[in-house]
Simulated scan of single mutants.
Amino acid sequence: MDLYLLLKAAHVVGATVLLGTGAGIAFFMLMAHRTGQPALIAHTARVVVIADTVFTATAVIIQPITGAALAHVVGYPLFSGWIGLSLLLYVVTGLCWLPVVWIQIRLRDLADAAAKAGQPLPERYHRLFRAWFMLGFPAFAAVLAIVWLMLAKPSF
């Protein structure tokens, strides 16, 4: 297998992991939140934090490496055109994702404390959940746009 196909396969898998893990995490966190059950939310958030660490963080590291290598192999300029826009959107995604990771950890801890105390979820949990939910929209939209740019390769 040549280098181009190997890099392209790794890049496509990484993009798929980012998109799929993001959608899955959002779905499971939202479904757990809707129950209002602190123990279930804490359990789900524990799994989500692990998934973000194992899958999302790995893909976050691999994507720019394989993308830069692909651009080099093909001869595309790295910081202009659709690749430059993809990189800008990648930064937007990261600026949303980093606080989301911190929020997920806090949501897990707040839900766990409420479950252990036999108390309802505190208001702080609900404020953080709203922030987590709202940060997901620009992050997910940016990832979708990046995938479209990768596929369409529009000329600007």
Results as ranks from 00 to 15, higher is better:
A15W: 15
F156S: 08
V49N: 08
F156K: 00
V73G: 00
L151V: 15
A39D: 10
L144F: 01
Y125C: 09
T53A: 13
L19W: 08
F28W: 15
A139T: 09
M150I: 07
A152R: 04
A68N: 13
T66H: 02
A139K: 01
A32V: 05
G118T: 05
G20N: 12
M150W: 03
A142R: 06
F137C: 02
L128C: 11
M31L: 08
F140N: 14
P120Y: 06
F55V: 00
F140M: 15
A117H: 06
P38Q: 04
L128S: 04
V49E: 06
A10G: 15
Q63M: 06
F27W: 13
L40I: 08
L149S: 09
P38Y: 00
D52F: 01
L107Y: 04
I25P: 06
D2A: 13
D109W: 00
A114D: 10
V101H: 11
A114Q: 12
F79D: 12
A39V: 01
W132Y: 15
Y4E: 09
M1Q: 02
Y125W: 14
Y4G: 01
G22V: 12
G118K: 10
M1G: 10
A51Y: 05
L144R: 00
G136Y: 05
A57D: 05
A51R: 05
L135H: 03
